[in-house]
Design a protein around this nucleic acid. Structure first.
Lengths: 122, 122
DNA sequence: TCCCTCCATAAGCAAAGACTTATGGAGGAG
DNA sequence: CTCCTCCATAAGTCTTTGCTTATGGAGGGA
């Protein structure tokens, strides 16, 4: 949970998150997607994924030799909560409900997720 | 509007935003508050305020020789919107309403030092 | 077994950025 | 006008960090 905004501060990492918003993906797919946009090496992407992991913004699931990355609501909810609290000081109680709602939405989408294009504003 | 998350990526700048969440403050007060925490020079704070300004996270109001800084919902709403869109792709239409709601809350709080707030995201 | 693919870590480098001191303009008080 | 306070910008230093190439472990297929 440390360094959530530090992790979000990099455009490449935000692009990774946007990619994963389309659903769970193996590290190799993330590398390929980023390289389709700008030249970047595999280790560089791996390092970015580590930062996102340490920040609690993504989580990994190992399957054979592949590592599947997906968004993690732990960090995302933390970031949203901090921003919300900035303007709405006592929104603390409503936060868990909001987190639950987005979690449900994410899980639903993850089921039918496919190799769509994902190019959100970064 | 460019560089919202880059601006949020620095802990000192986030501390400035937290300070301003208590209400509008002159630059000098921000400097004093930060120096009460860790040694930092006045120009350093001024540079941080510039970054926040360029990111649309704060706005300035000149009064005599003082510059009063306050939170700006332009950047804050943009950040929240990006995070929300990451997990809830279809929330695009509801976003403006949310921004309006927090804007109203902010304005109300600015009038009175302390206020109570309820509901939203039922 | 050997090899090949997938991915993470190590080490070094170069660009970005956060900090410093020095300076100067703008506005109020005397 | 003169001085003094408040604040922003300039210039330079030093740390941070994002990138590279090199390497090696883990797992699957032959």
């Amino acid at each position: 949970m440390t360094g959530v905004f530090e992790a979000l501060g990099d455009a490449t990492r935000r692009h990774v998150l946007a990619l994963l918003s389309a659903g769970e993906q193996p590290a190799g797919a993330v590398v390929a997607a980023l390289q389709a946009r700008a030249p970047i090496s595999q280790p560089a992407v791996s390092q970015h994924l580590k930062v996102l992991r340490d920040a609690g913004l993504v989580r990994v699931r190992a399957e054979g030799t592949r590592r599947f990355y997906a968004l993690d609501d732990a960090g995302l909810a933390a970031a949203r909560a901090w921003l919300t609290q900035l303007t709405d000081p006592l929104q603390g109680a409503a936060q868990p409900l909001d987190a639950l709602a987005t979690e449900l939405a994410r899980g639903r989408r993850a089921d039918r997720a496919r190799t769509d294009r994902a190019d959100r504003t970064a």
